[in-house]
Amino acid sequence: MNSHYVLFELGARWGAKKPLFPLITDNKGVSILKGPLQGINALVAHEEGQLFQFVADIGKELGIVPEGPNSYHGQMKQFIKSLANTGANEKPVKAQSSQPQKESNSEEYSGANEQIKEHCKQEWPDDFHMRAHCIAEQSKALLILQQGRPSDIEEDDFVTIRKKAARDWPSDFHMRAHQEKEQFEALRRLKDL
């Protein structure tokens, strides 16, 4: 973030509305993003779940389905460990939410894995390949939902968006996460008006 060239490239990509997948390795997390970049959904490399999301997002943009996480989980753990060994003494900052993550999300999503399996079984009763793909997509979406409130979204707005998405898509986490993302982006655009 100290390089003017990097900031210029990030700004140009953002301004051109091209896909942008920032992965932050700095222990300060998303707090290092300034200006219009604060509104983008940056992921933090110190968190396993966010790295899984990063791989899924890149795969989706490229139109490919990445290999299962078990094929690269070992390398991911080594990568996270290497970040911890870069000499930074600070603990990594958790991304986005200011709420107590474990308590609220464990209650809000208790039984989610069973719900995902049942949803995908109903969607794909006789196509096991598509059922497995459905479960993977739903699980990735659940990881996004579990990240909680983005730092630039007000608590009241977040609660309104989350409740509506849960009401509209009670058994589809993928569509819930998609609807929330669209609503967050719309809120950000409204703030710029």
Score class of each variant (00 low, 15 high):
180 E>I: 02
20 L>P: 00
145 L>S: 07
179 Q>D: 09
189 R>S: 04
182 E>L: 09
72 Y>K: 04
68 G>W: 10
141 A>N: 10
170 P>D: 08
166 A>F: 03
71 S>G: 02
65 V>S: 11
160 T>R: 00
27 N>L: 08
143 L>V: 08
173 F>Y: 13
102 K>T: 10
186 A>M: 10
174 H>A: 11
141 A>F: 05
50 Q>N: 09
18 K>C: 10
74 G>C: 00
101 Q>P: 04
64 I>V: 15
112 A>S: 14
165 A>P: 01
11 G>Y: 12
74 G>T: 06
109 Y>V: 01
154 E>C: 13
54 F>A: 08
49 G>N: 11
102 K>R: 09
57 D>I: 00
25 T>Q: 13
97 S>D: 14
52 F>R: 13
102 K>Y: 05
19 P>N: 07
106 S>C: 15
101 Q>G: 04
54 F>S: 06
108 E>A: 11
183 Q>A: 14
171 S>W: 10
45 A>Y: 02
188 R>I: 09
64 I>P: 02
6 V>I: 15
145 L>Y: 03
41 N>M: 03
41 N>S: 03
56 A>Q: 12
50 Q>I: 02
17 K>N: 12
142 L>W: 06
102 K>H: 06
172 D>P: 03
127 D>G: 03
43 L>R: 14
164 K>Y: 01
25 T>C: 14
31 S>V: 09
67 E>P: 05
143 L>A: 10
186 A>V: 05
63 G>Q: 01
141 A>T: 07
52 F>P: 00
135 I>G: 06
155 E>H: 14
96 Q>T: 13
27 N>F: 05
119 H>M: 14
62 L>A: 13
4 H>I: 01
85 N>P: 05
79 F>P: 02
85 N>Q: 15
93 V>W: 00
24 I>G: 02
2 N>C: 03
21 F>V: 02
114 E>K: 12
192 D>S: 04
49 G>I: 06
96 Q>P: 00
144 I>R: 03
163 K>G: 04
170 P>R: 08
174 H>T: 06
142 L>G: 03
91 K>F: 02
158 F>E: 12
50 Q>G: 04
148 G>M: 07
86 T>G: 05
53 Q>R: 12
19 P>R: 07
38 Q>E: 12
193 L>Y: 07
134 C>R: 02
115 Q>Y: 07
36 P>I: 04
117 K>G: 00
166 A>E: 05
100 P>I: 08
58 I>E: 01
124 W>C: 10
123 E>S: 07
96 Q>L: 12
38 Q>L: 08
26 D>G: 00
134 C>I: 05
83 L>A: 04
2 N>G: 06
33 L>M: 14
70 N>H: 12
114 E>A: 15
149 R>I: 07
112 A>Q: 04
42 A>Y: 07
112 A>C: 09
20 L>K: 04
129 H>Y: 13
172 D>A: 00
